[in-house]
Nucleic acid binder design. Structure first.
Lengths: 225, 225
DNA sequence: CAAACGTTGGAAACGCCGTTCTCACGCGAG
DNA sequence: CTCGCGTGAGAACGGCGTTTCCAACGTTTG
């Protein structure tokens, strides 16, 4: 193999490059397929048991692959959990994007966005379309991930944070709200909404439970609307 | 022992009761001492390593007690963690109570309370008096406890929630703020403040970090102030 | 065709840790 | 003295994430 690698640099024939890339493509697609099998197995386990406390062995058995293969594609269990989280966030991003696209005014978009975000985090509030997974266990585990891998979680949430900033910017420019620092305001809004469902866990009495609308009203006034 | 226990009911001589209770008292105080040794050992381990990921064995070694003794007093590791959390919250409660007692007007009390609560959750913001423990790891683990034992966490937090409700009530009655449901408002305020520090974990850039004051301003307007 | 090589599956094995079990020691009561 | 009981010390168990080893199989090469 040495002789092949050290041919004169820079003038690789095109066919070779294409052949390599083709081989890499099939390898890549096969790898992606196998990874997806792991993800699907893990999702189905989470849906069934309602918790992220599955074992690697269960994922192996259900995906009909080998332990060896698992560690070939994932550095460890945390990587799998992070992949599940990122996948879930990706679904959320698509859903949220469609929400704001159907809004007419900036404020309406911001309101619809925050309410949908609240409902997304707490799927128990409204029955969702059955096509998606049970997000509850993953969202619960997300706080754990936030402690251990905050950078990864931040990166995964970046698209949502970005949308939030743009919405706040637009609403602020339109005069619907009045904030000095839109980035800070967006962060505040996002936190309040996203952890609102988490705090509901501590509210056994229904009277203290926070609905998406109540949370929005609070935030709206907090933003000077 | 049978004959002693089954003497005629209801007319136990007072001395016997006193003796029994005395024996129970010494037993209780000894038990409390031993429990405290476990707690102290765990706290010191947390302080040193900056994480709650200590092993039972470490606690045993440091407290110079036996594994058997540990399971005699704690049902499992979770019970120990919950005890540590409850102890930490107790300290916070005392501190917060002293804060609101030195407030003149209702609004000032509410503001001082929320800001202190924010600082309490995130000890890194302000250097605290060194008498207390490093709360960071415990607060991080608290979110995990919230997932697994929400009822216990809610019970532990009850005094703080109670104070929060009273402060909101007072401020509302004084006209400093304007909310319809003070319980709901208190829950909202508490959540926003407490998870604000947690959300800061996701804010790598300093520009998005939320200070106690910024959070308070947001909440104050949200409460119709 | 045969030999060498990389990839994959299967499964044993390791290490850590929470939890339980066993046993022996010490001590007060009968 | 001995019986029972609480206690300490530590072995042992079980679950699980992770690593390692080996055999099977397909592919490439001489």
């Amino acid at each position: 193999m040495r002789e092949v690698d050290t041919t004169e640099d820079g003038n690789e024939p095109a066919w070779r490059e294409r052949a390599v890339s083709r081989s890499l493509n099939t390898a890549r697609s096969r790898a992606e397929q196998r990874v997806q099998r792991f993800l699907d197995a893990a999702f189905s386990l989470i849906d069934e048991h309602g918790t992220t406390e599955f074992t690697i062995q269960e994922v192996i058995d259900r995906s009909k692959q080998s332990l060896r293969g698992f560690y070939q594609y994932f550095e460890g269990k945390d990587e799998l959990l992070l992949a599940l989280f990122e996948e879930t966030v990706r679904e959320a991003t698509d859903d949220l994007r469609s929400v704001i696209e159907s809004a007419r005014e900036p404020l309406e978009g911001l309101r619809a966005f925050t309410i949908r975000l609240h409902e997304w985090c707490d799927p128990s509030e409204k029955p969702q379309k059955r096509s998606t997974h049970n997000r509850r266990p993953i969202m619960e585990f997300a706080v754990q991930l936030t402690v251990d891998h905050s950078d990864r979680v931040e990166a995964a949430m970046a698209p949502i944070s970005q949308m939030m900033v743009e919405l706040v910017d637009a609403a602020n420019a339109a005069g619907a709200i009045n904030v000095a620092d839109t980035h800070r305001a967006a962060a505040l809004l996002q936190q309040t909404v996203m952890y609102s469902w988490f705090g509901n866990r501590l509210a056994m009495s229904a009277r203290k439970r926070l609905t998406a609308e109540a949370t929005w009203d609070f935030c709206f006034r907090g933003l000077g609307g």
